[in-house]
Design a protein around this nucleic acid. Structure first.
Lengths: 108, 108
DNA sequence: TTACATTTGACCAATAAAGGACAAGTCCTT
DNA sequence: AAGGACTTGTCCTTTATTGGTCAAATGTAA
């Protein structure tokens, strides 16, 4: 309802996590921006799901916030998966198929 | 082992399915190419997983082969999901997260 | 050997996405 | 009113992906 009517895309759970981490670490966007050597507007967009987060940035952020990079990486990937299938009618079925194939490939 | 050593990417199950459908319908690539109004090389690449299949083409193909478009669409999506996560370390976990979110969103 | 089917590699134009910067605006709080 | 924090829109450059083509190579059956 209060939604913009526009297509939101990217990282969603990740961006929320990043914002939460920043705040719980008592940092302001300016400080995070300094670490990544970018504009604060860029950080804002990342936290508001308007720009993707690169893996390079993700690494740096995981160090800054002192969380395991695998945690962020997992959210990053989950968001990408979600983004891929969110508008798809046959997502559930496709999910199952892809999952099976992943498992099969794992025991190569 | 007989693998090219190079990165294969895109649609995999879909491309195999398309090849199988073409053959079981007794068609040669030239005929399929004619329908899509493209070069046969392009068809070859699609069947060999070297080019993605657009949804437009998918529609036409489902009509040509007389299969439900949802079947092809599902494979198309499964391939995209697989492609996204195949090199990812935390795929399984990300999968679970995305799946939960899909389910949650479904009962909006 | 000829012919048809298929594959492969090189190439290319058009489009989309990533990765930003900057200016201006909003939203507090003081 | 001023300042800091954040957001938003516009713009830009660079890079990646799509959607092909063409020529040449390979496979294969008659």
């Amino acid at each position: 309802m209060t939604n913009k009517g526009q297509v939101l895309w990217w990282n969603n759970m990740l961006s929320e996590k990043l914002k939460q981490l920043r705040e719980s670490n008592g940092l302001v966007q300016r400080q995070v921006a300094a670490l990544l050597e970018v504009d604060t507007a860029y950080i804002s967009k990342i936290e508001n799901n308007e720009k993707p987060v690169s893996r390079i940035h993700l690494e740096k952020l995981s160090k800054l916030f002192n969380v395991g990079s695998e945690e962020l990486l997992t959210l990053w990937l989950a968001d990408k998966i979600f983004d891929l299938i969110k508008n798809e009618e046959f997502a559930a079925e496709a999910f199952k198929i892809a999952e099976e194939r992943i498992l099969k490939d794992k025991k190569n």
